[in-house]
Design a protein around this nucleic acid. Structure first.
Lengths: 156, 156
DNA sequence: ATTGTTACGCAGGATTTATGCATATTGGAC
DNA sequence: GTCCAATATGCATAAATCCTGCGTAACAAT
């Protein structure tokens, strides 16, 4: 785990919400000069603390009308099967989020599709044609109440 | 739904992965001048197609060792109760993602905590003390296989 | 205390973004 | 098809922002 001071935390919390802030704006938040802020960000990105800087696109605005939560159970929890499914998740662009979990299912996925027909086609390709999968259960997202990855960060 | 041409799509798909690309880099992707790319992004942001530009921070790197998926069931599916819980989701920073869903549960949440103790404290505050909640079920995330919001976008 | 390392702020250069203008393209009416 | 208004484009340039080098300050170890 990386050692973070108060300024790092302030920067990270701000950037989790808006990563297009200028160094000037960040300097006000972190109480450092703009240059120091830049350097810290450079370090935080190099160290993998900041994993990515991404734009969140509204699925609905671009024609992806449905979002599905899918609980997936595998035939067996063997390492090779798990790893194979992890790779499938990473290689499949319709899968926005994929977590390997304990509990009711082995994996939980968040998937977008144009419509139900699109989702059905996806299930055919991704689930039914995959012999590693024992079953899956779908929940339709009716409202993306909150979609982000921001969380509170504590000073070390 | 917003009308998107090939260039818009190329831009959006690139920015879903990396929103720190320069206009020059984007111009190569979209086959437009850098200025035109800037204008398109300005429009896409103004129209809400791009909802946010965010940095994804590694929870583990900053001491948030556990991520939980929580299925929440409400006492009743009355509008006021649902809206109240949606507001609670939005107001609670530990909740990174919150979807209102059909199926086994009413809501599905993604929550980070420092450790099990931190998660327990959170459940006390957020679930047990909320009379609107009938029950909740937790799944521990063992591997954040894929965490992002990128999906494929079709040309209109 | 000293010393070495790391981080800082400042100044200035390099790069990127924003803006205004002229021109090109597109969409709608006929 | 033509014509015209609206919209989008690329270019040039101004403004803003980022990056780098340097000297100094701060910190950690002894």
């Amino acid at each position: 785990m990386i050692k973070l001071d108060r300024a790092d935390v302030a920067l990270l919390e701000a950037l989790q919400v808006n990563c297009r802030l200028t160094s000037e704006e960040l300097s006000e938040i972190a109480h450092l000069s703009p240059t120091a802020c830049q350097r810290r960000l450079k370090r935080l990105r190099a160290e993998g603390v900041i994993e990515a800087d991404i734009s969140v696109v509204s699925p609905k605005a671009v024609g992806r009308q449905i979002t599905m939560i899918v609980l997936v159970s595998l035939e067996r929890e063997r390492v090779d099967i798990v790893d194979r499914f992890k790779a499938a998740i990473r290689d499949t662009r319709e899968v926005m989020i994929g977590y390997y979990v304990t509990g009711d299912a082995d994996f939980i996925l968040v998937i977008t599709a144009r419509d139900m027909e699109g989702y059905e086609q996806f299930t055919r390709r991704f689930f039914y044609e995959n012999p590693d999968i024992k079953g899956f259960k779908t929940m339709v997202v009716m409202d993306r109440v909150k979609a982000g990855f921001a969380f509170p960060i504590d000073v070390d």
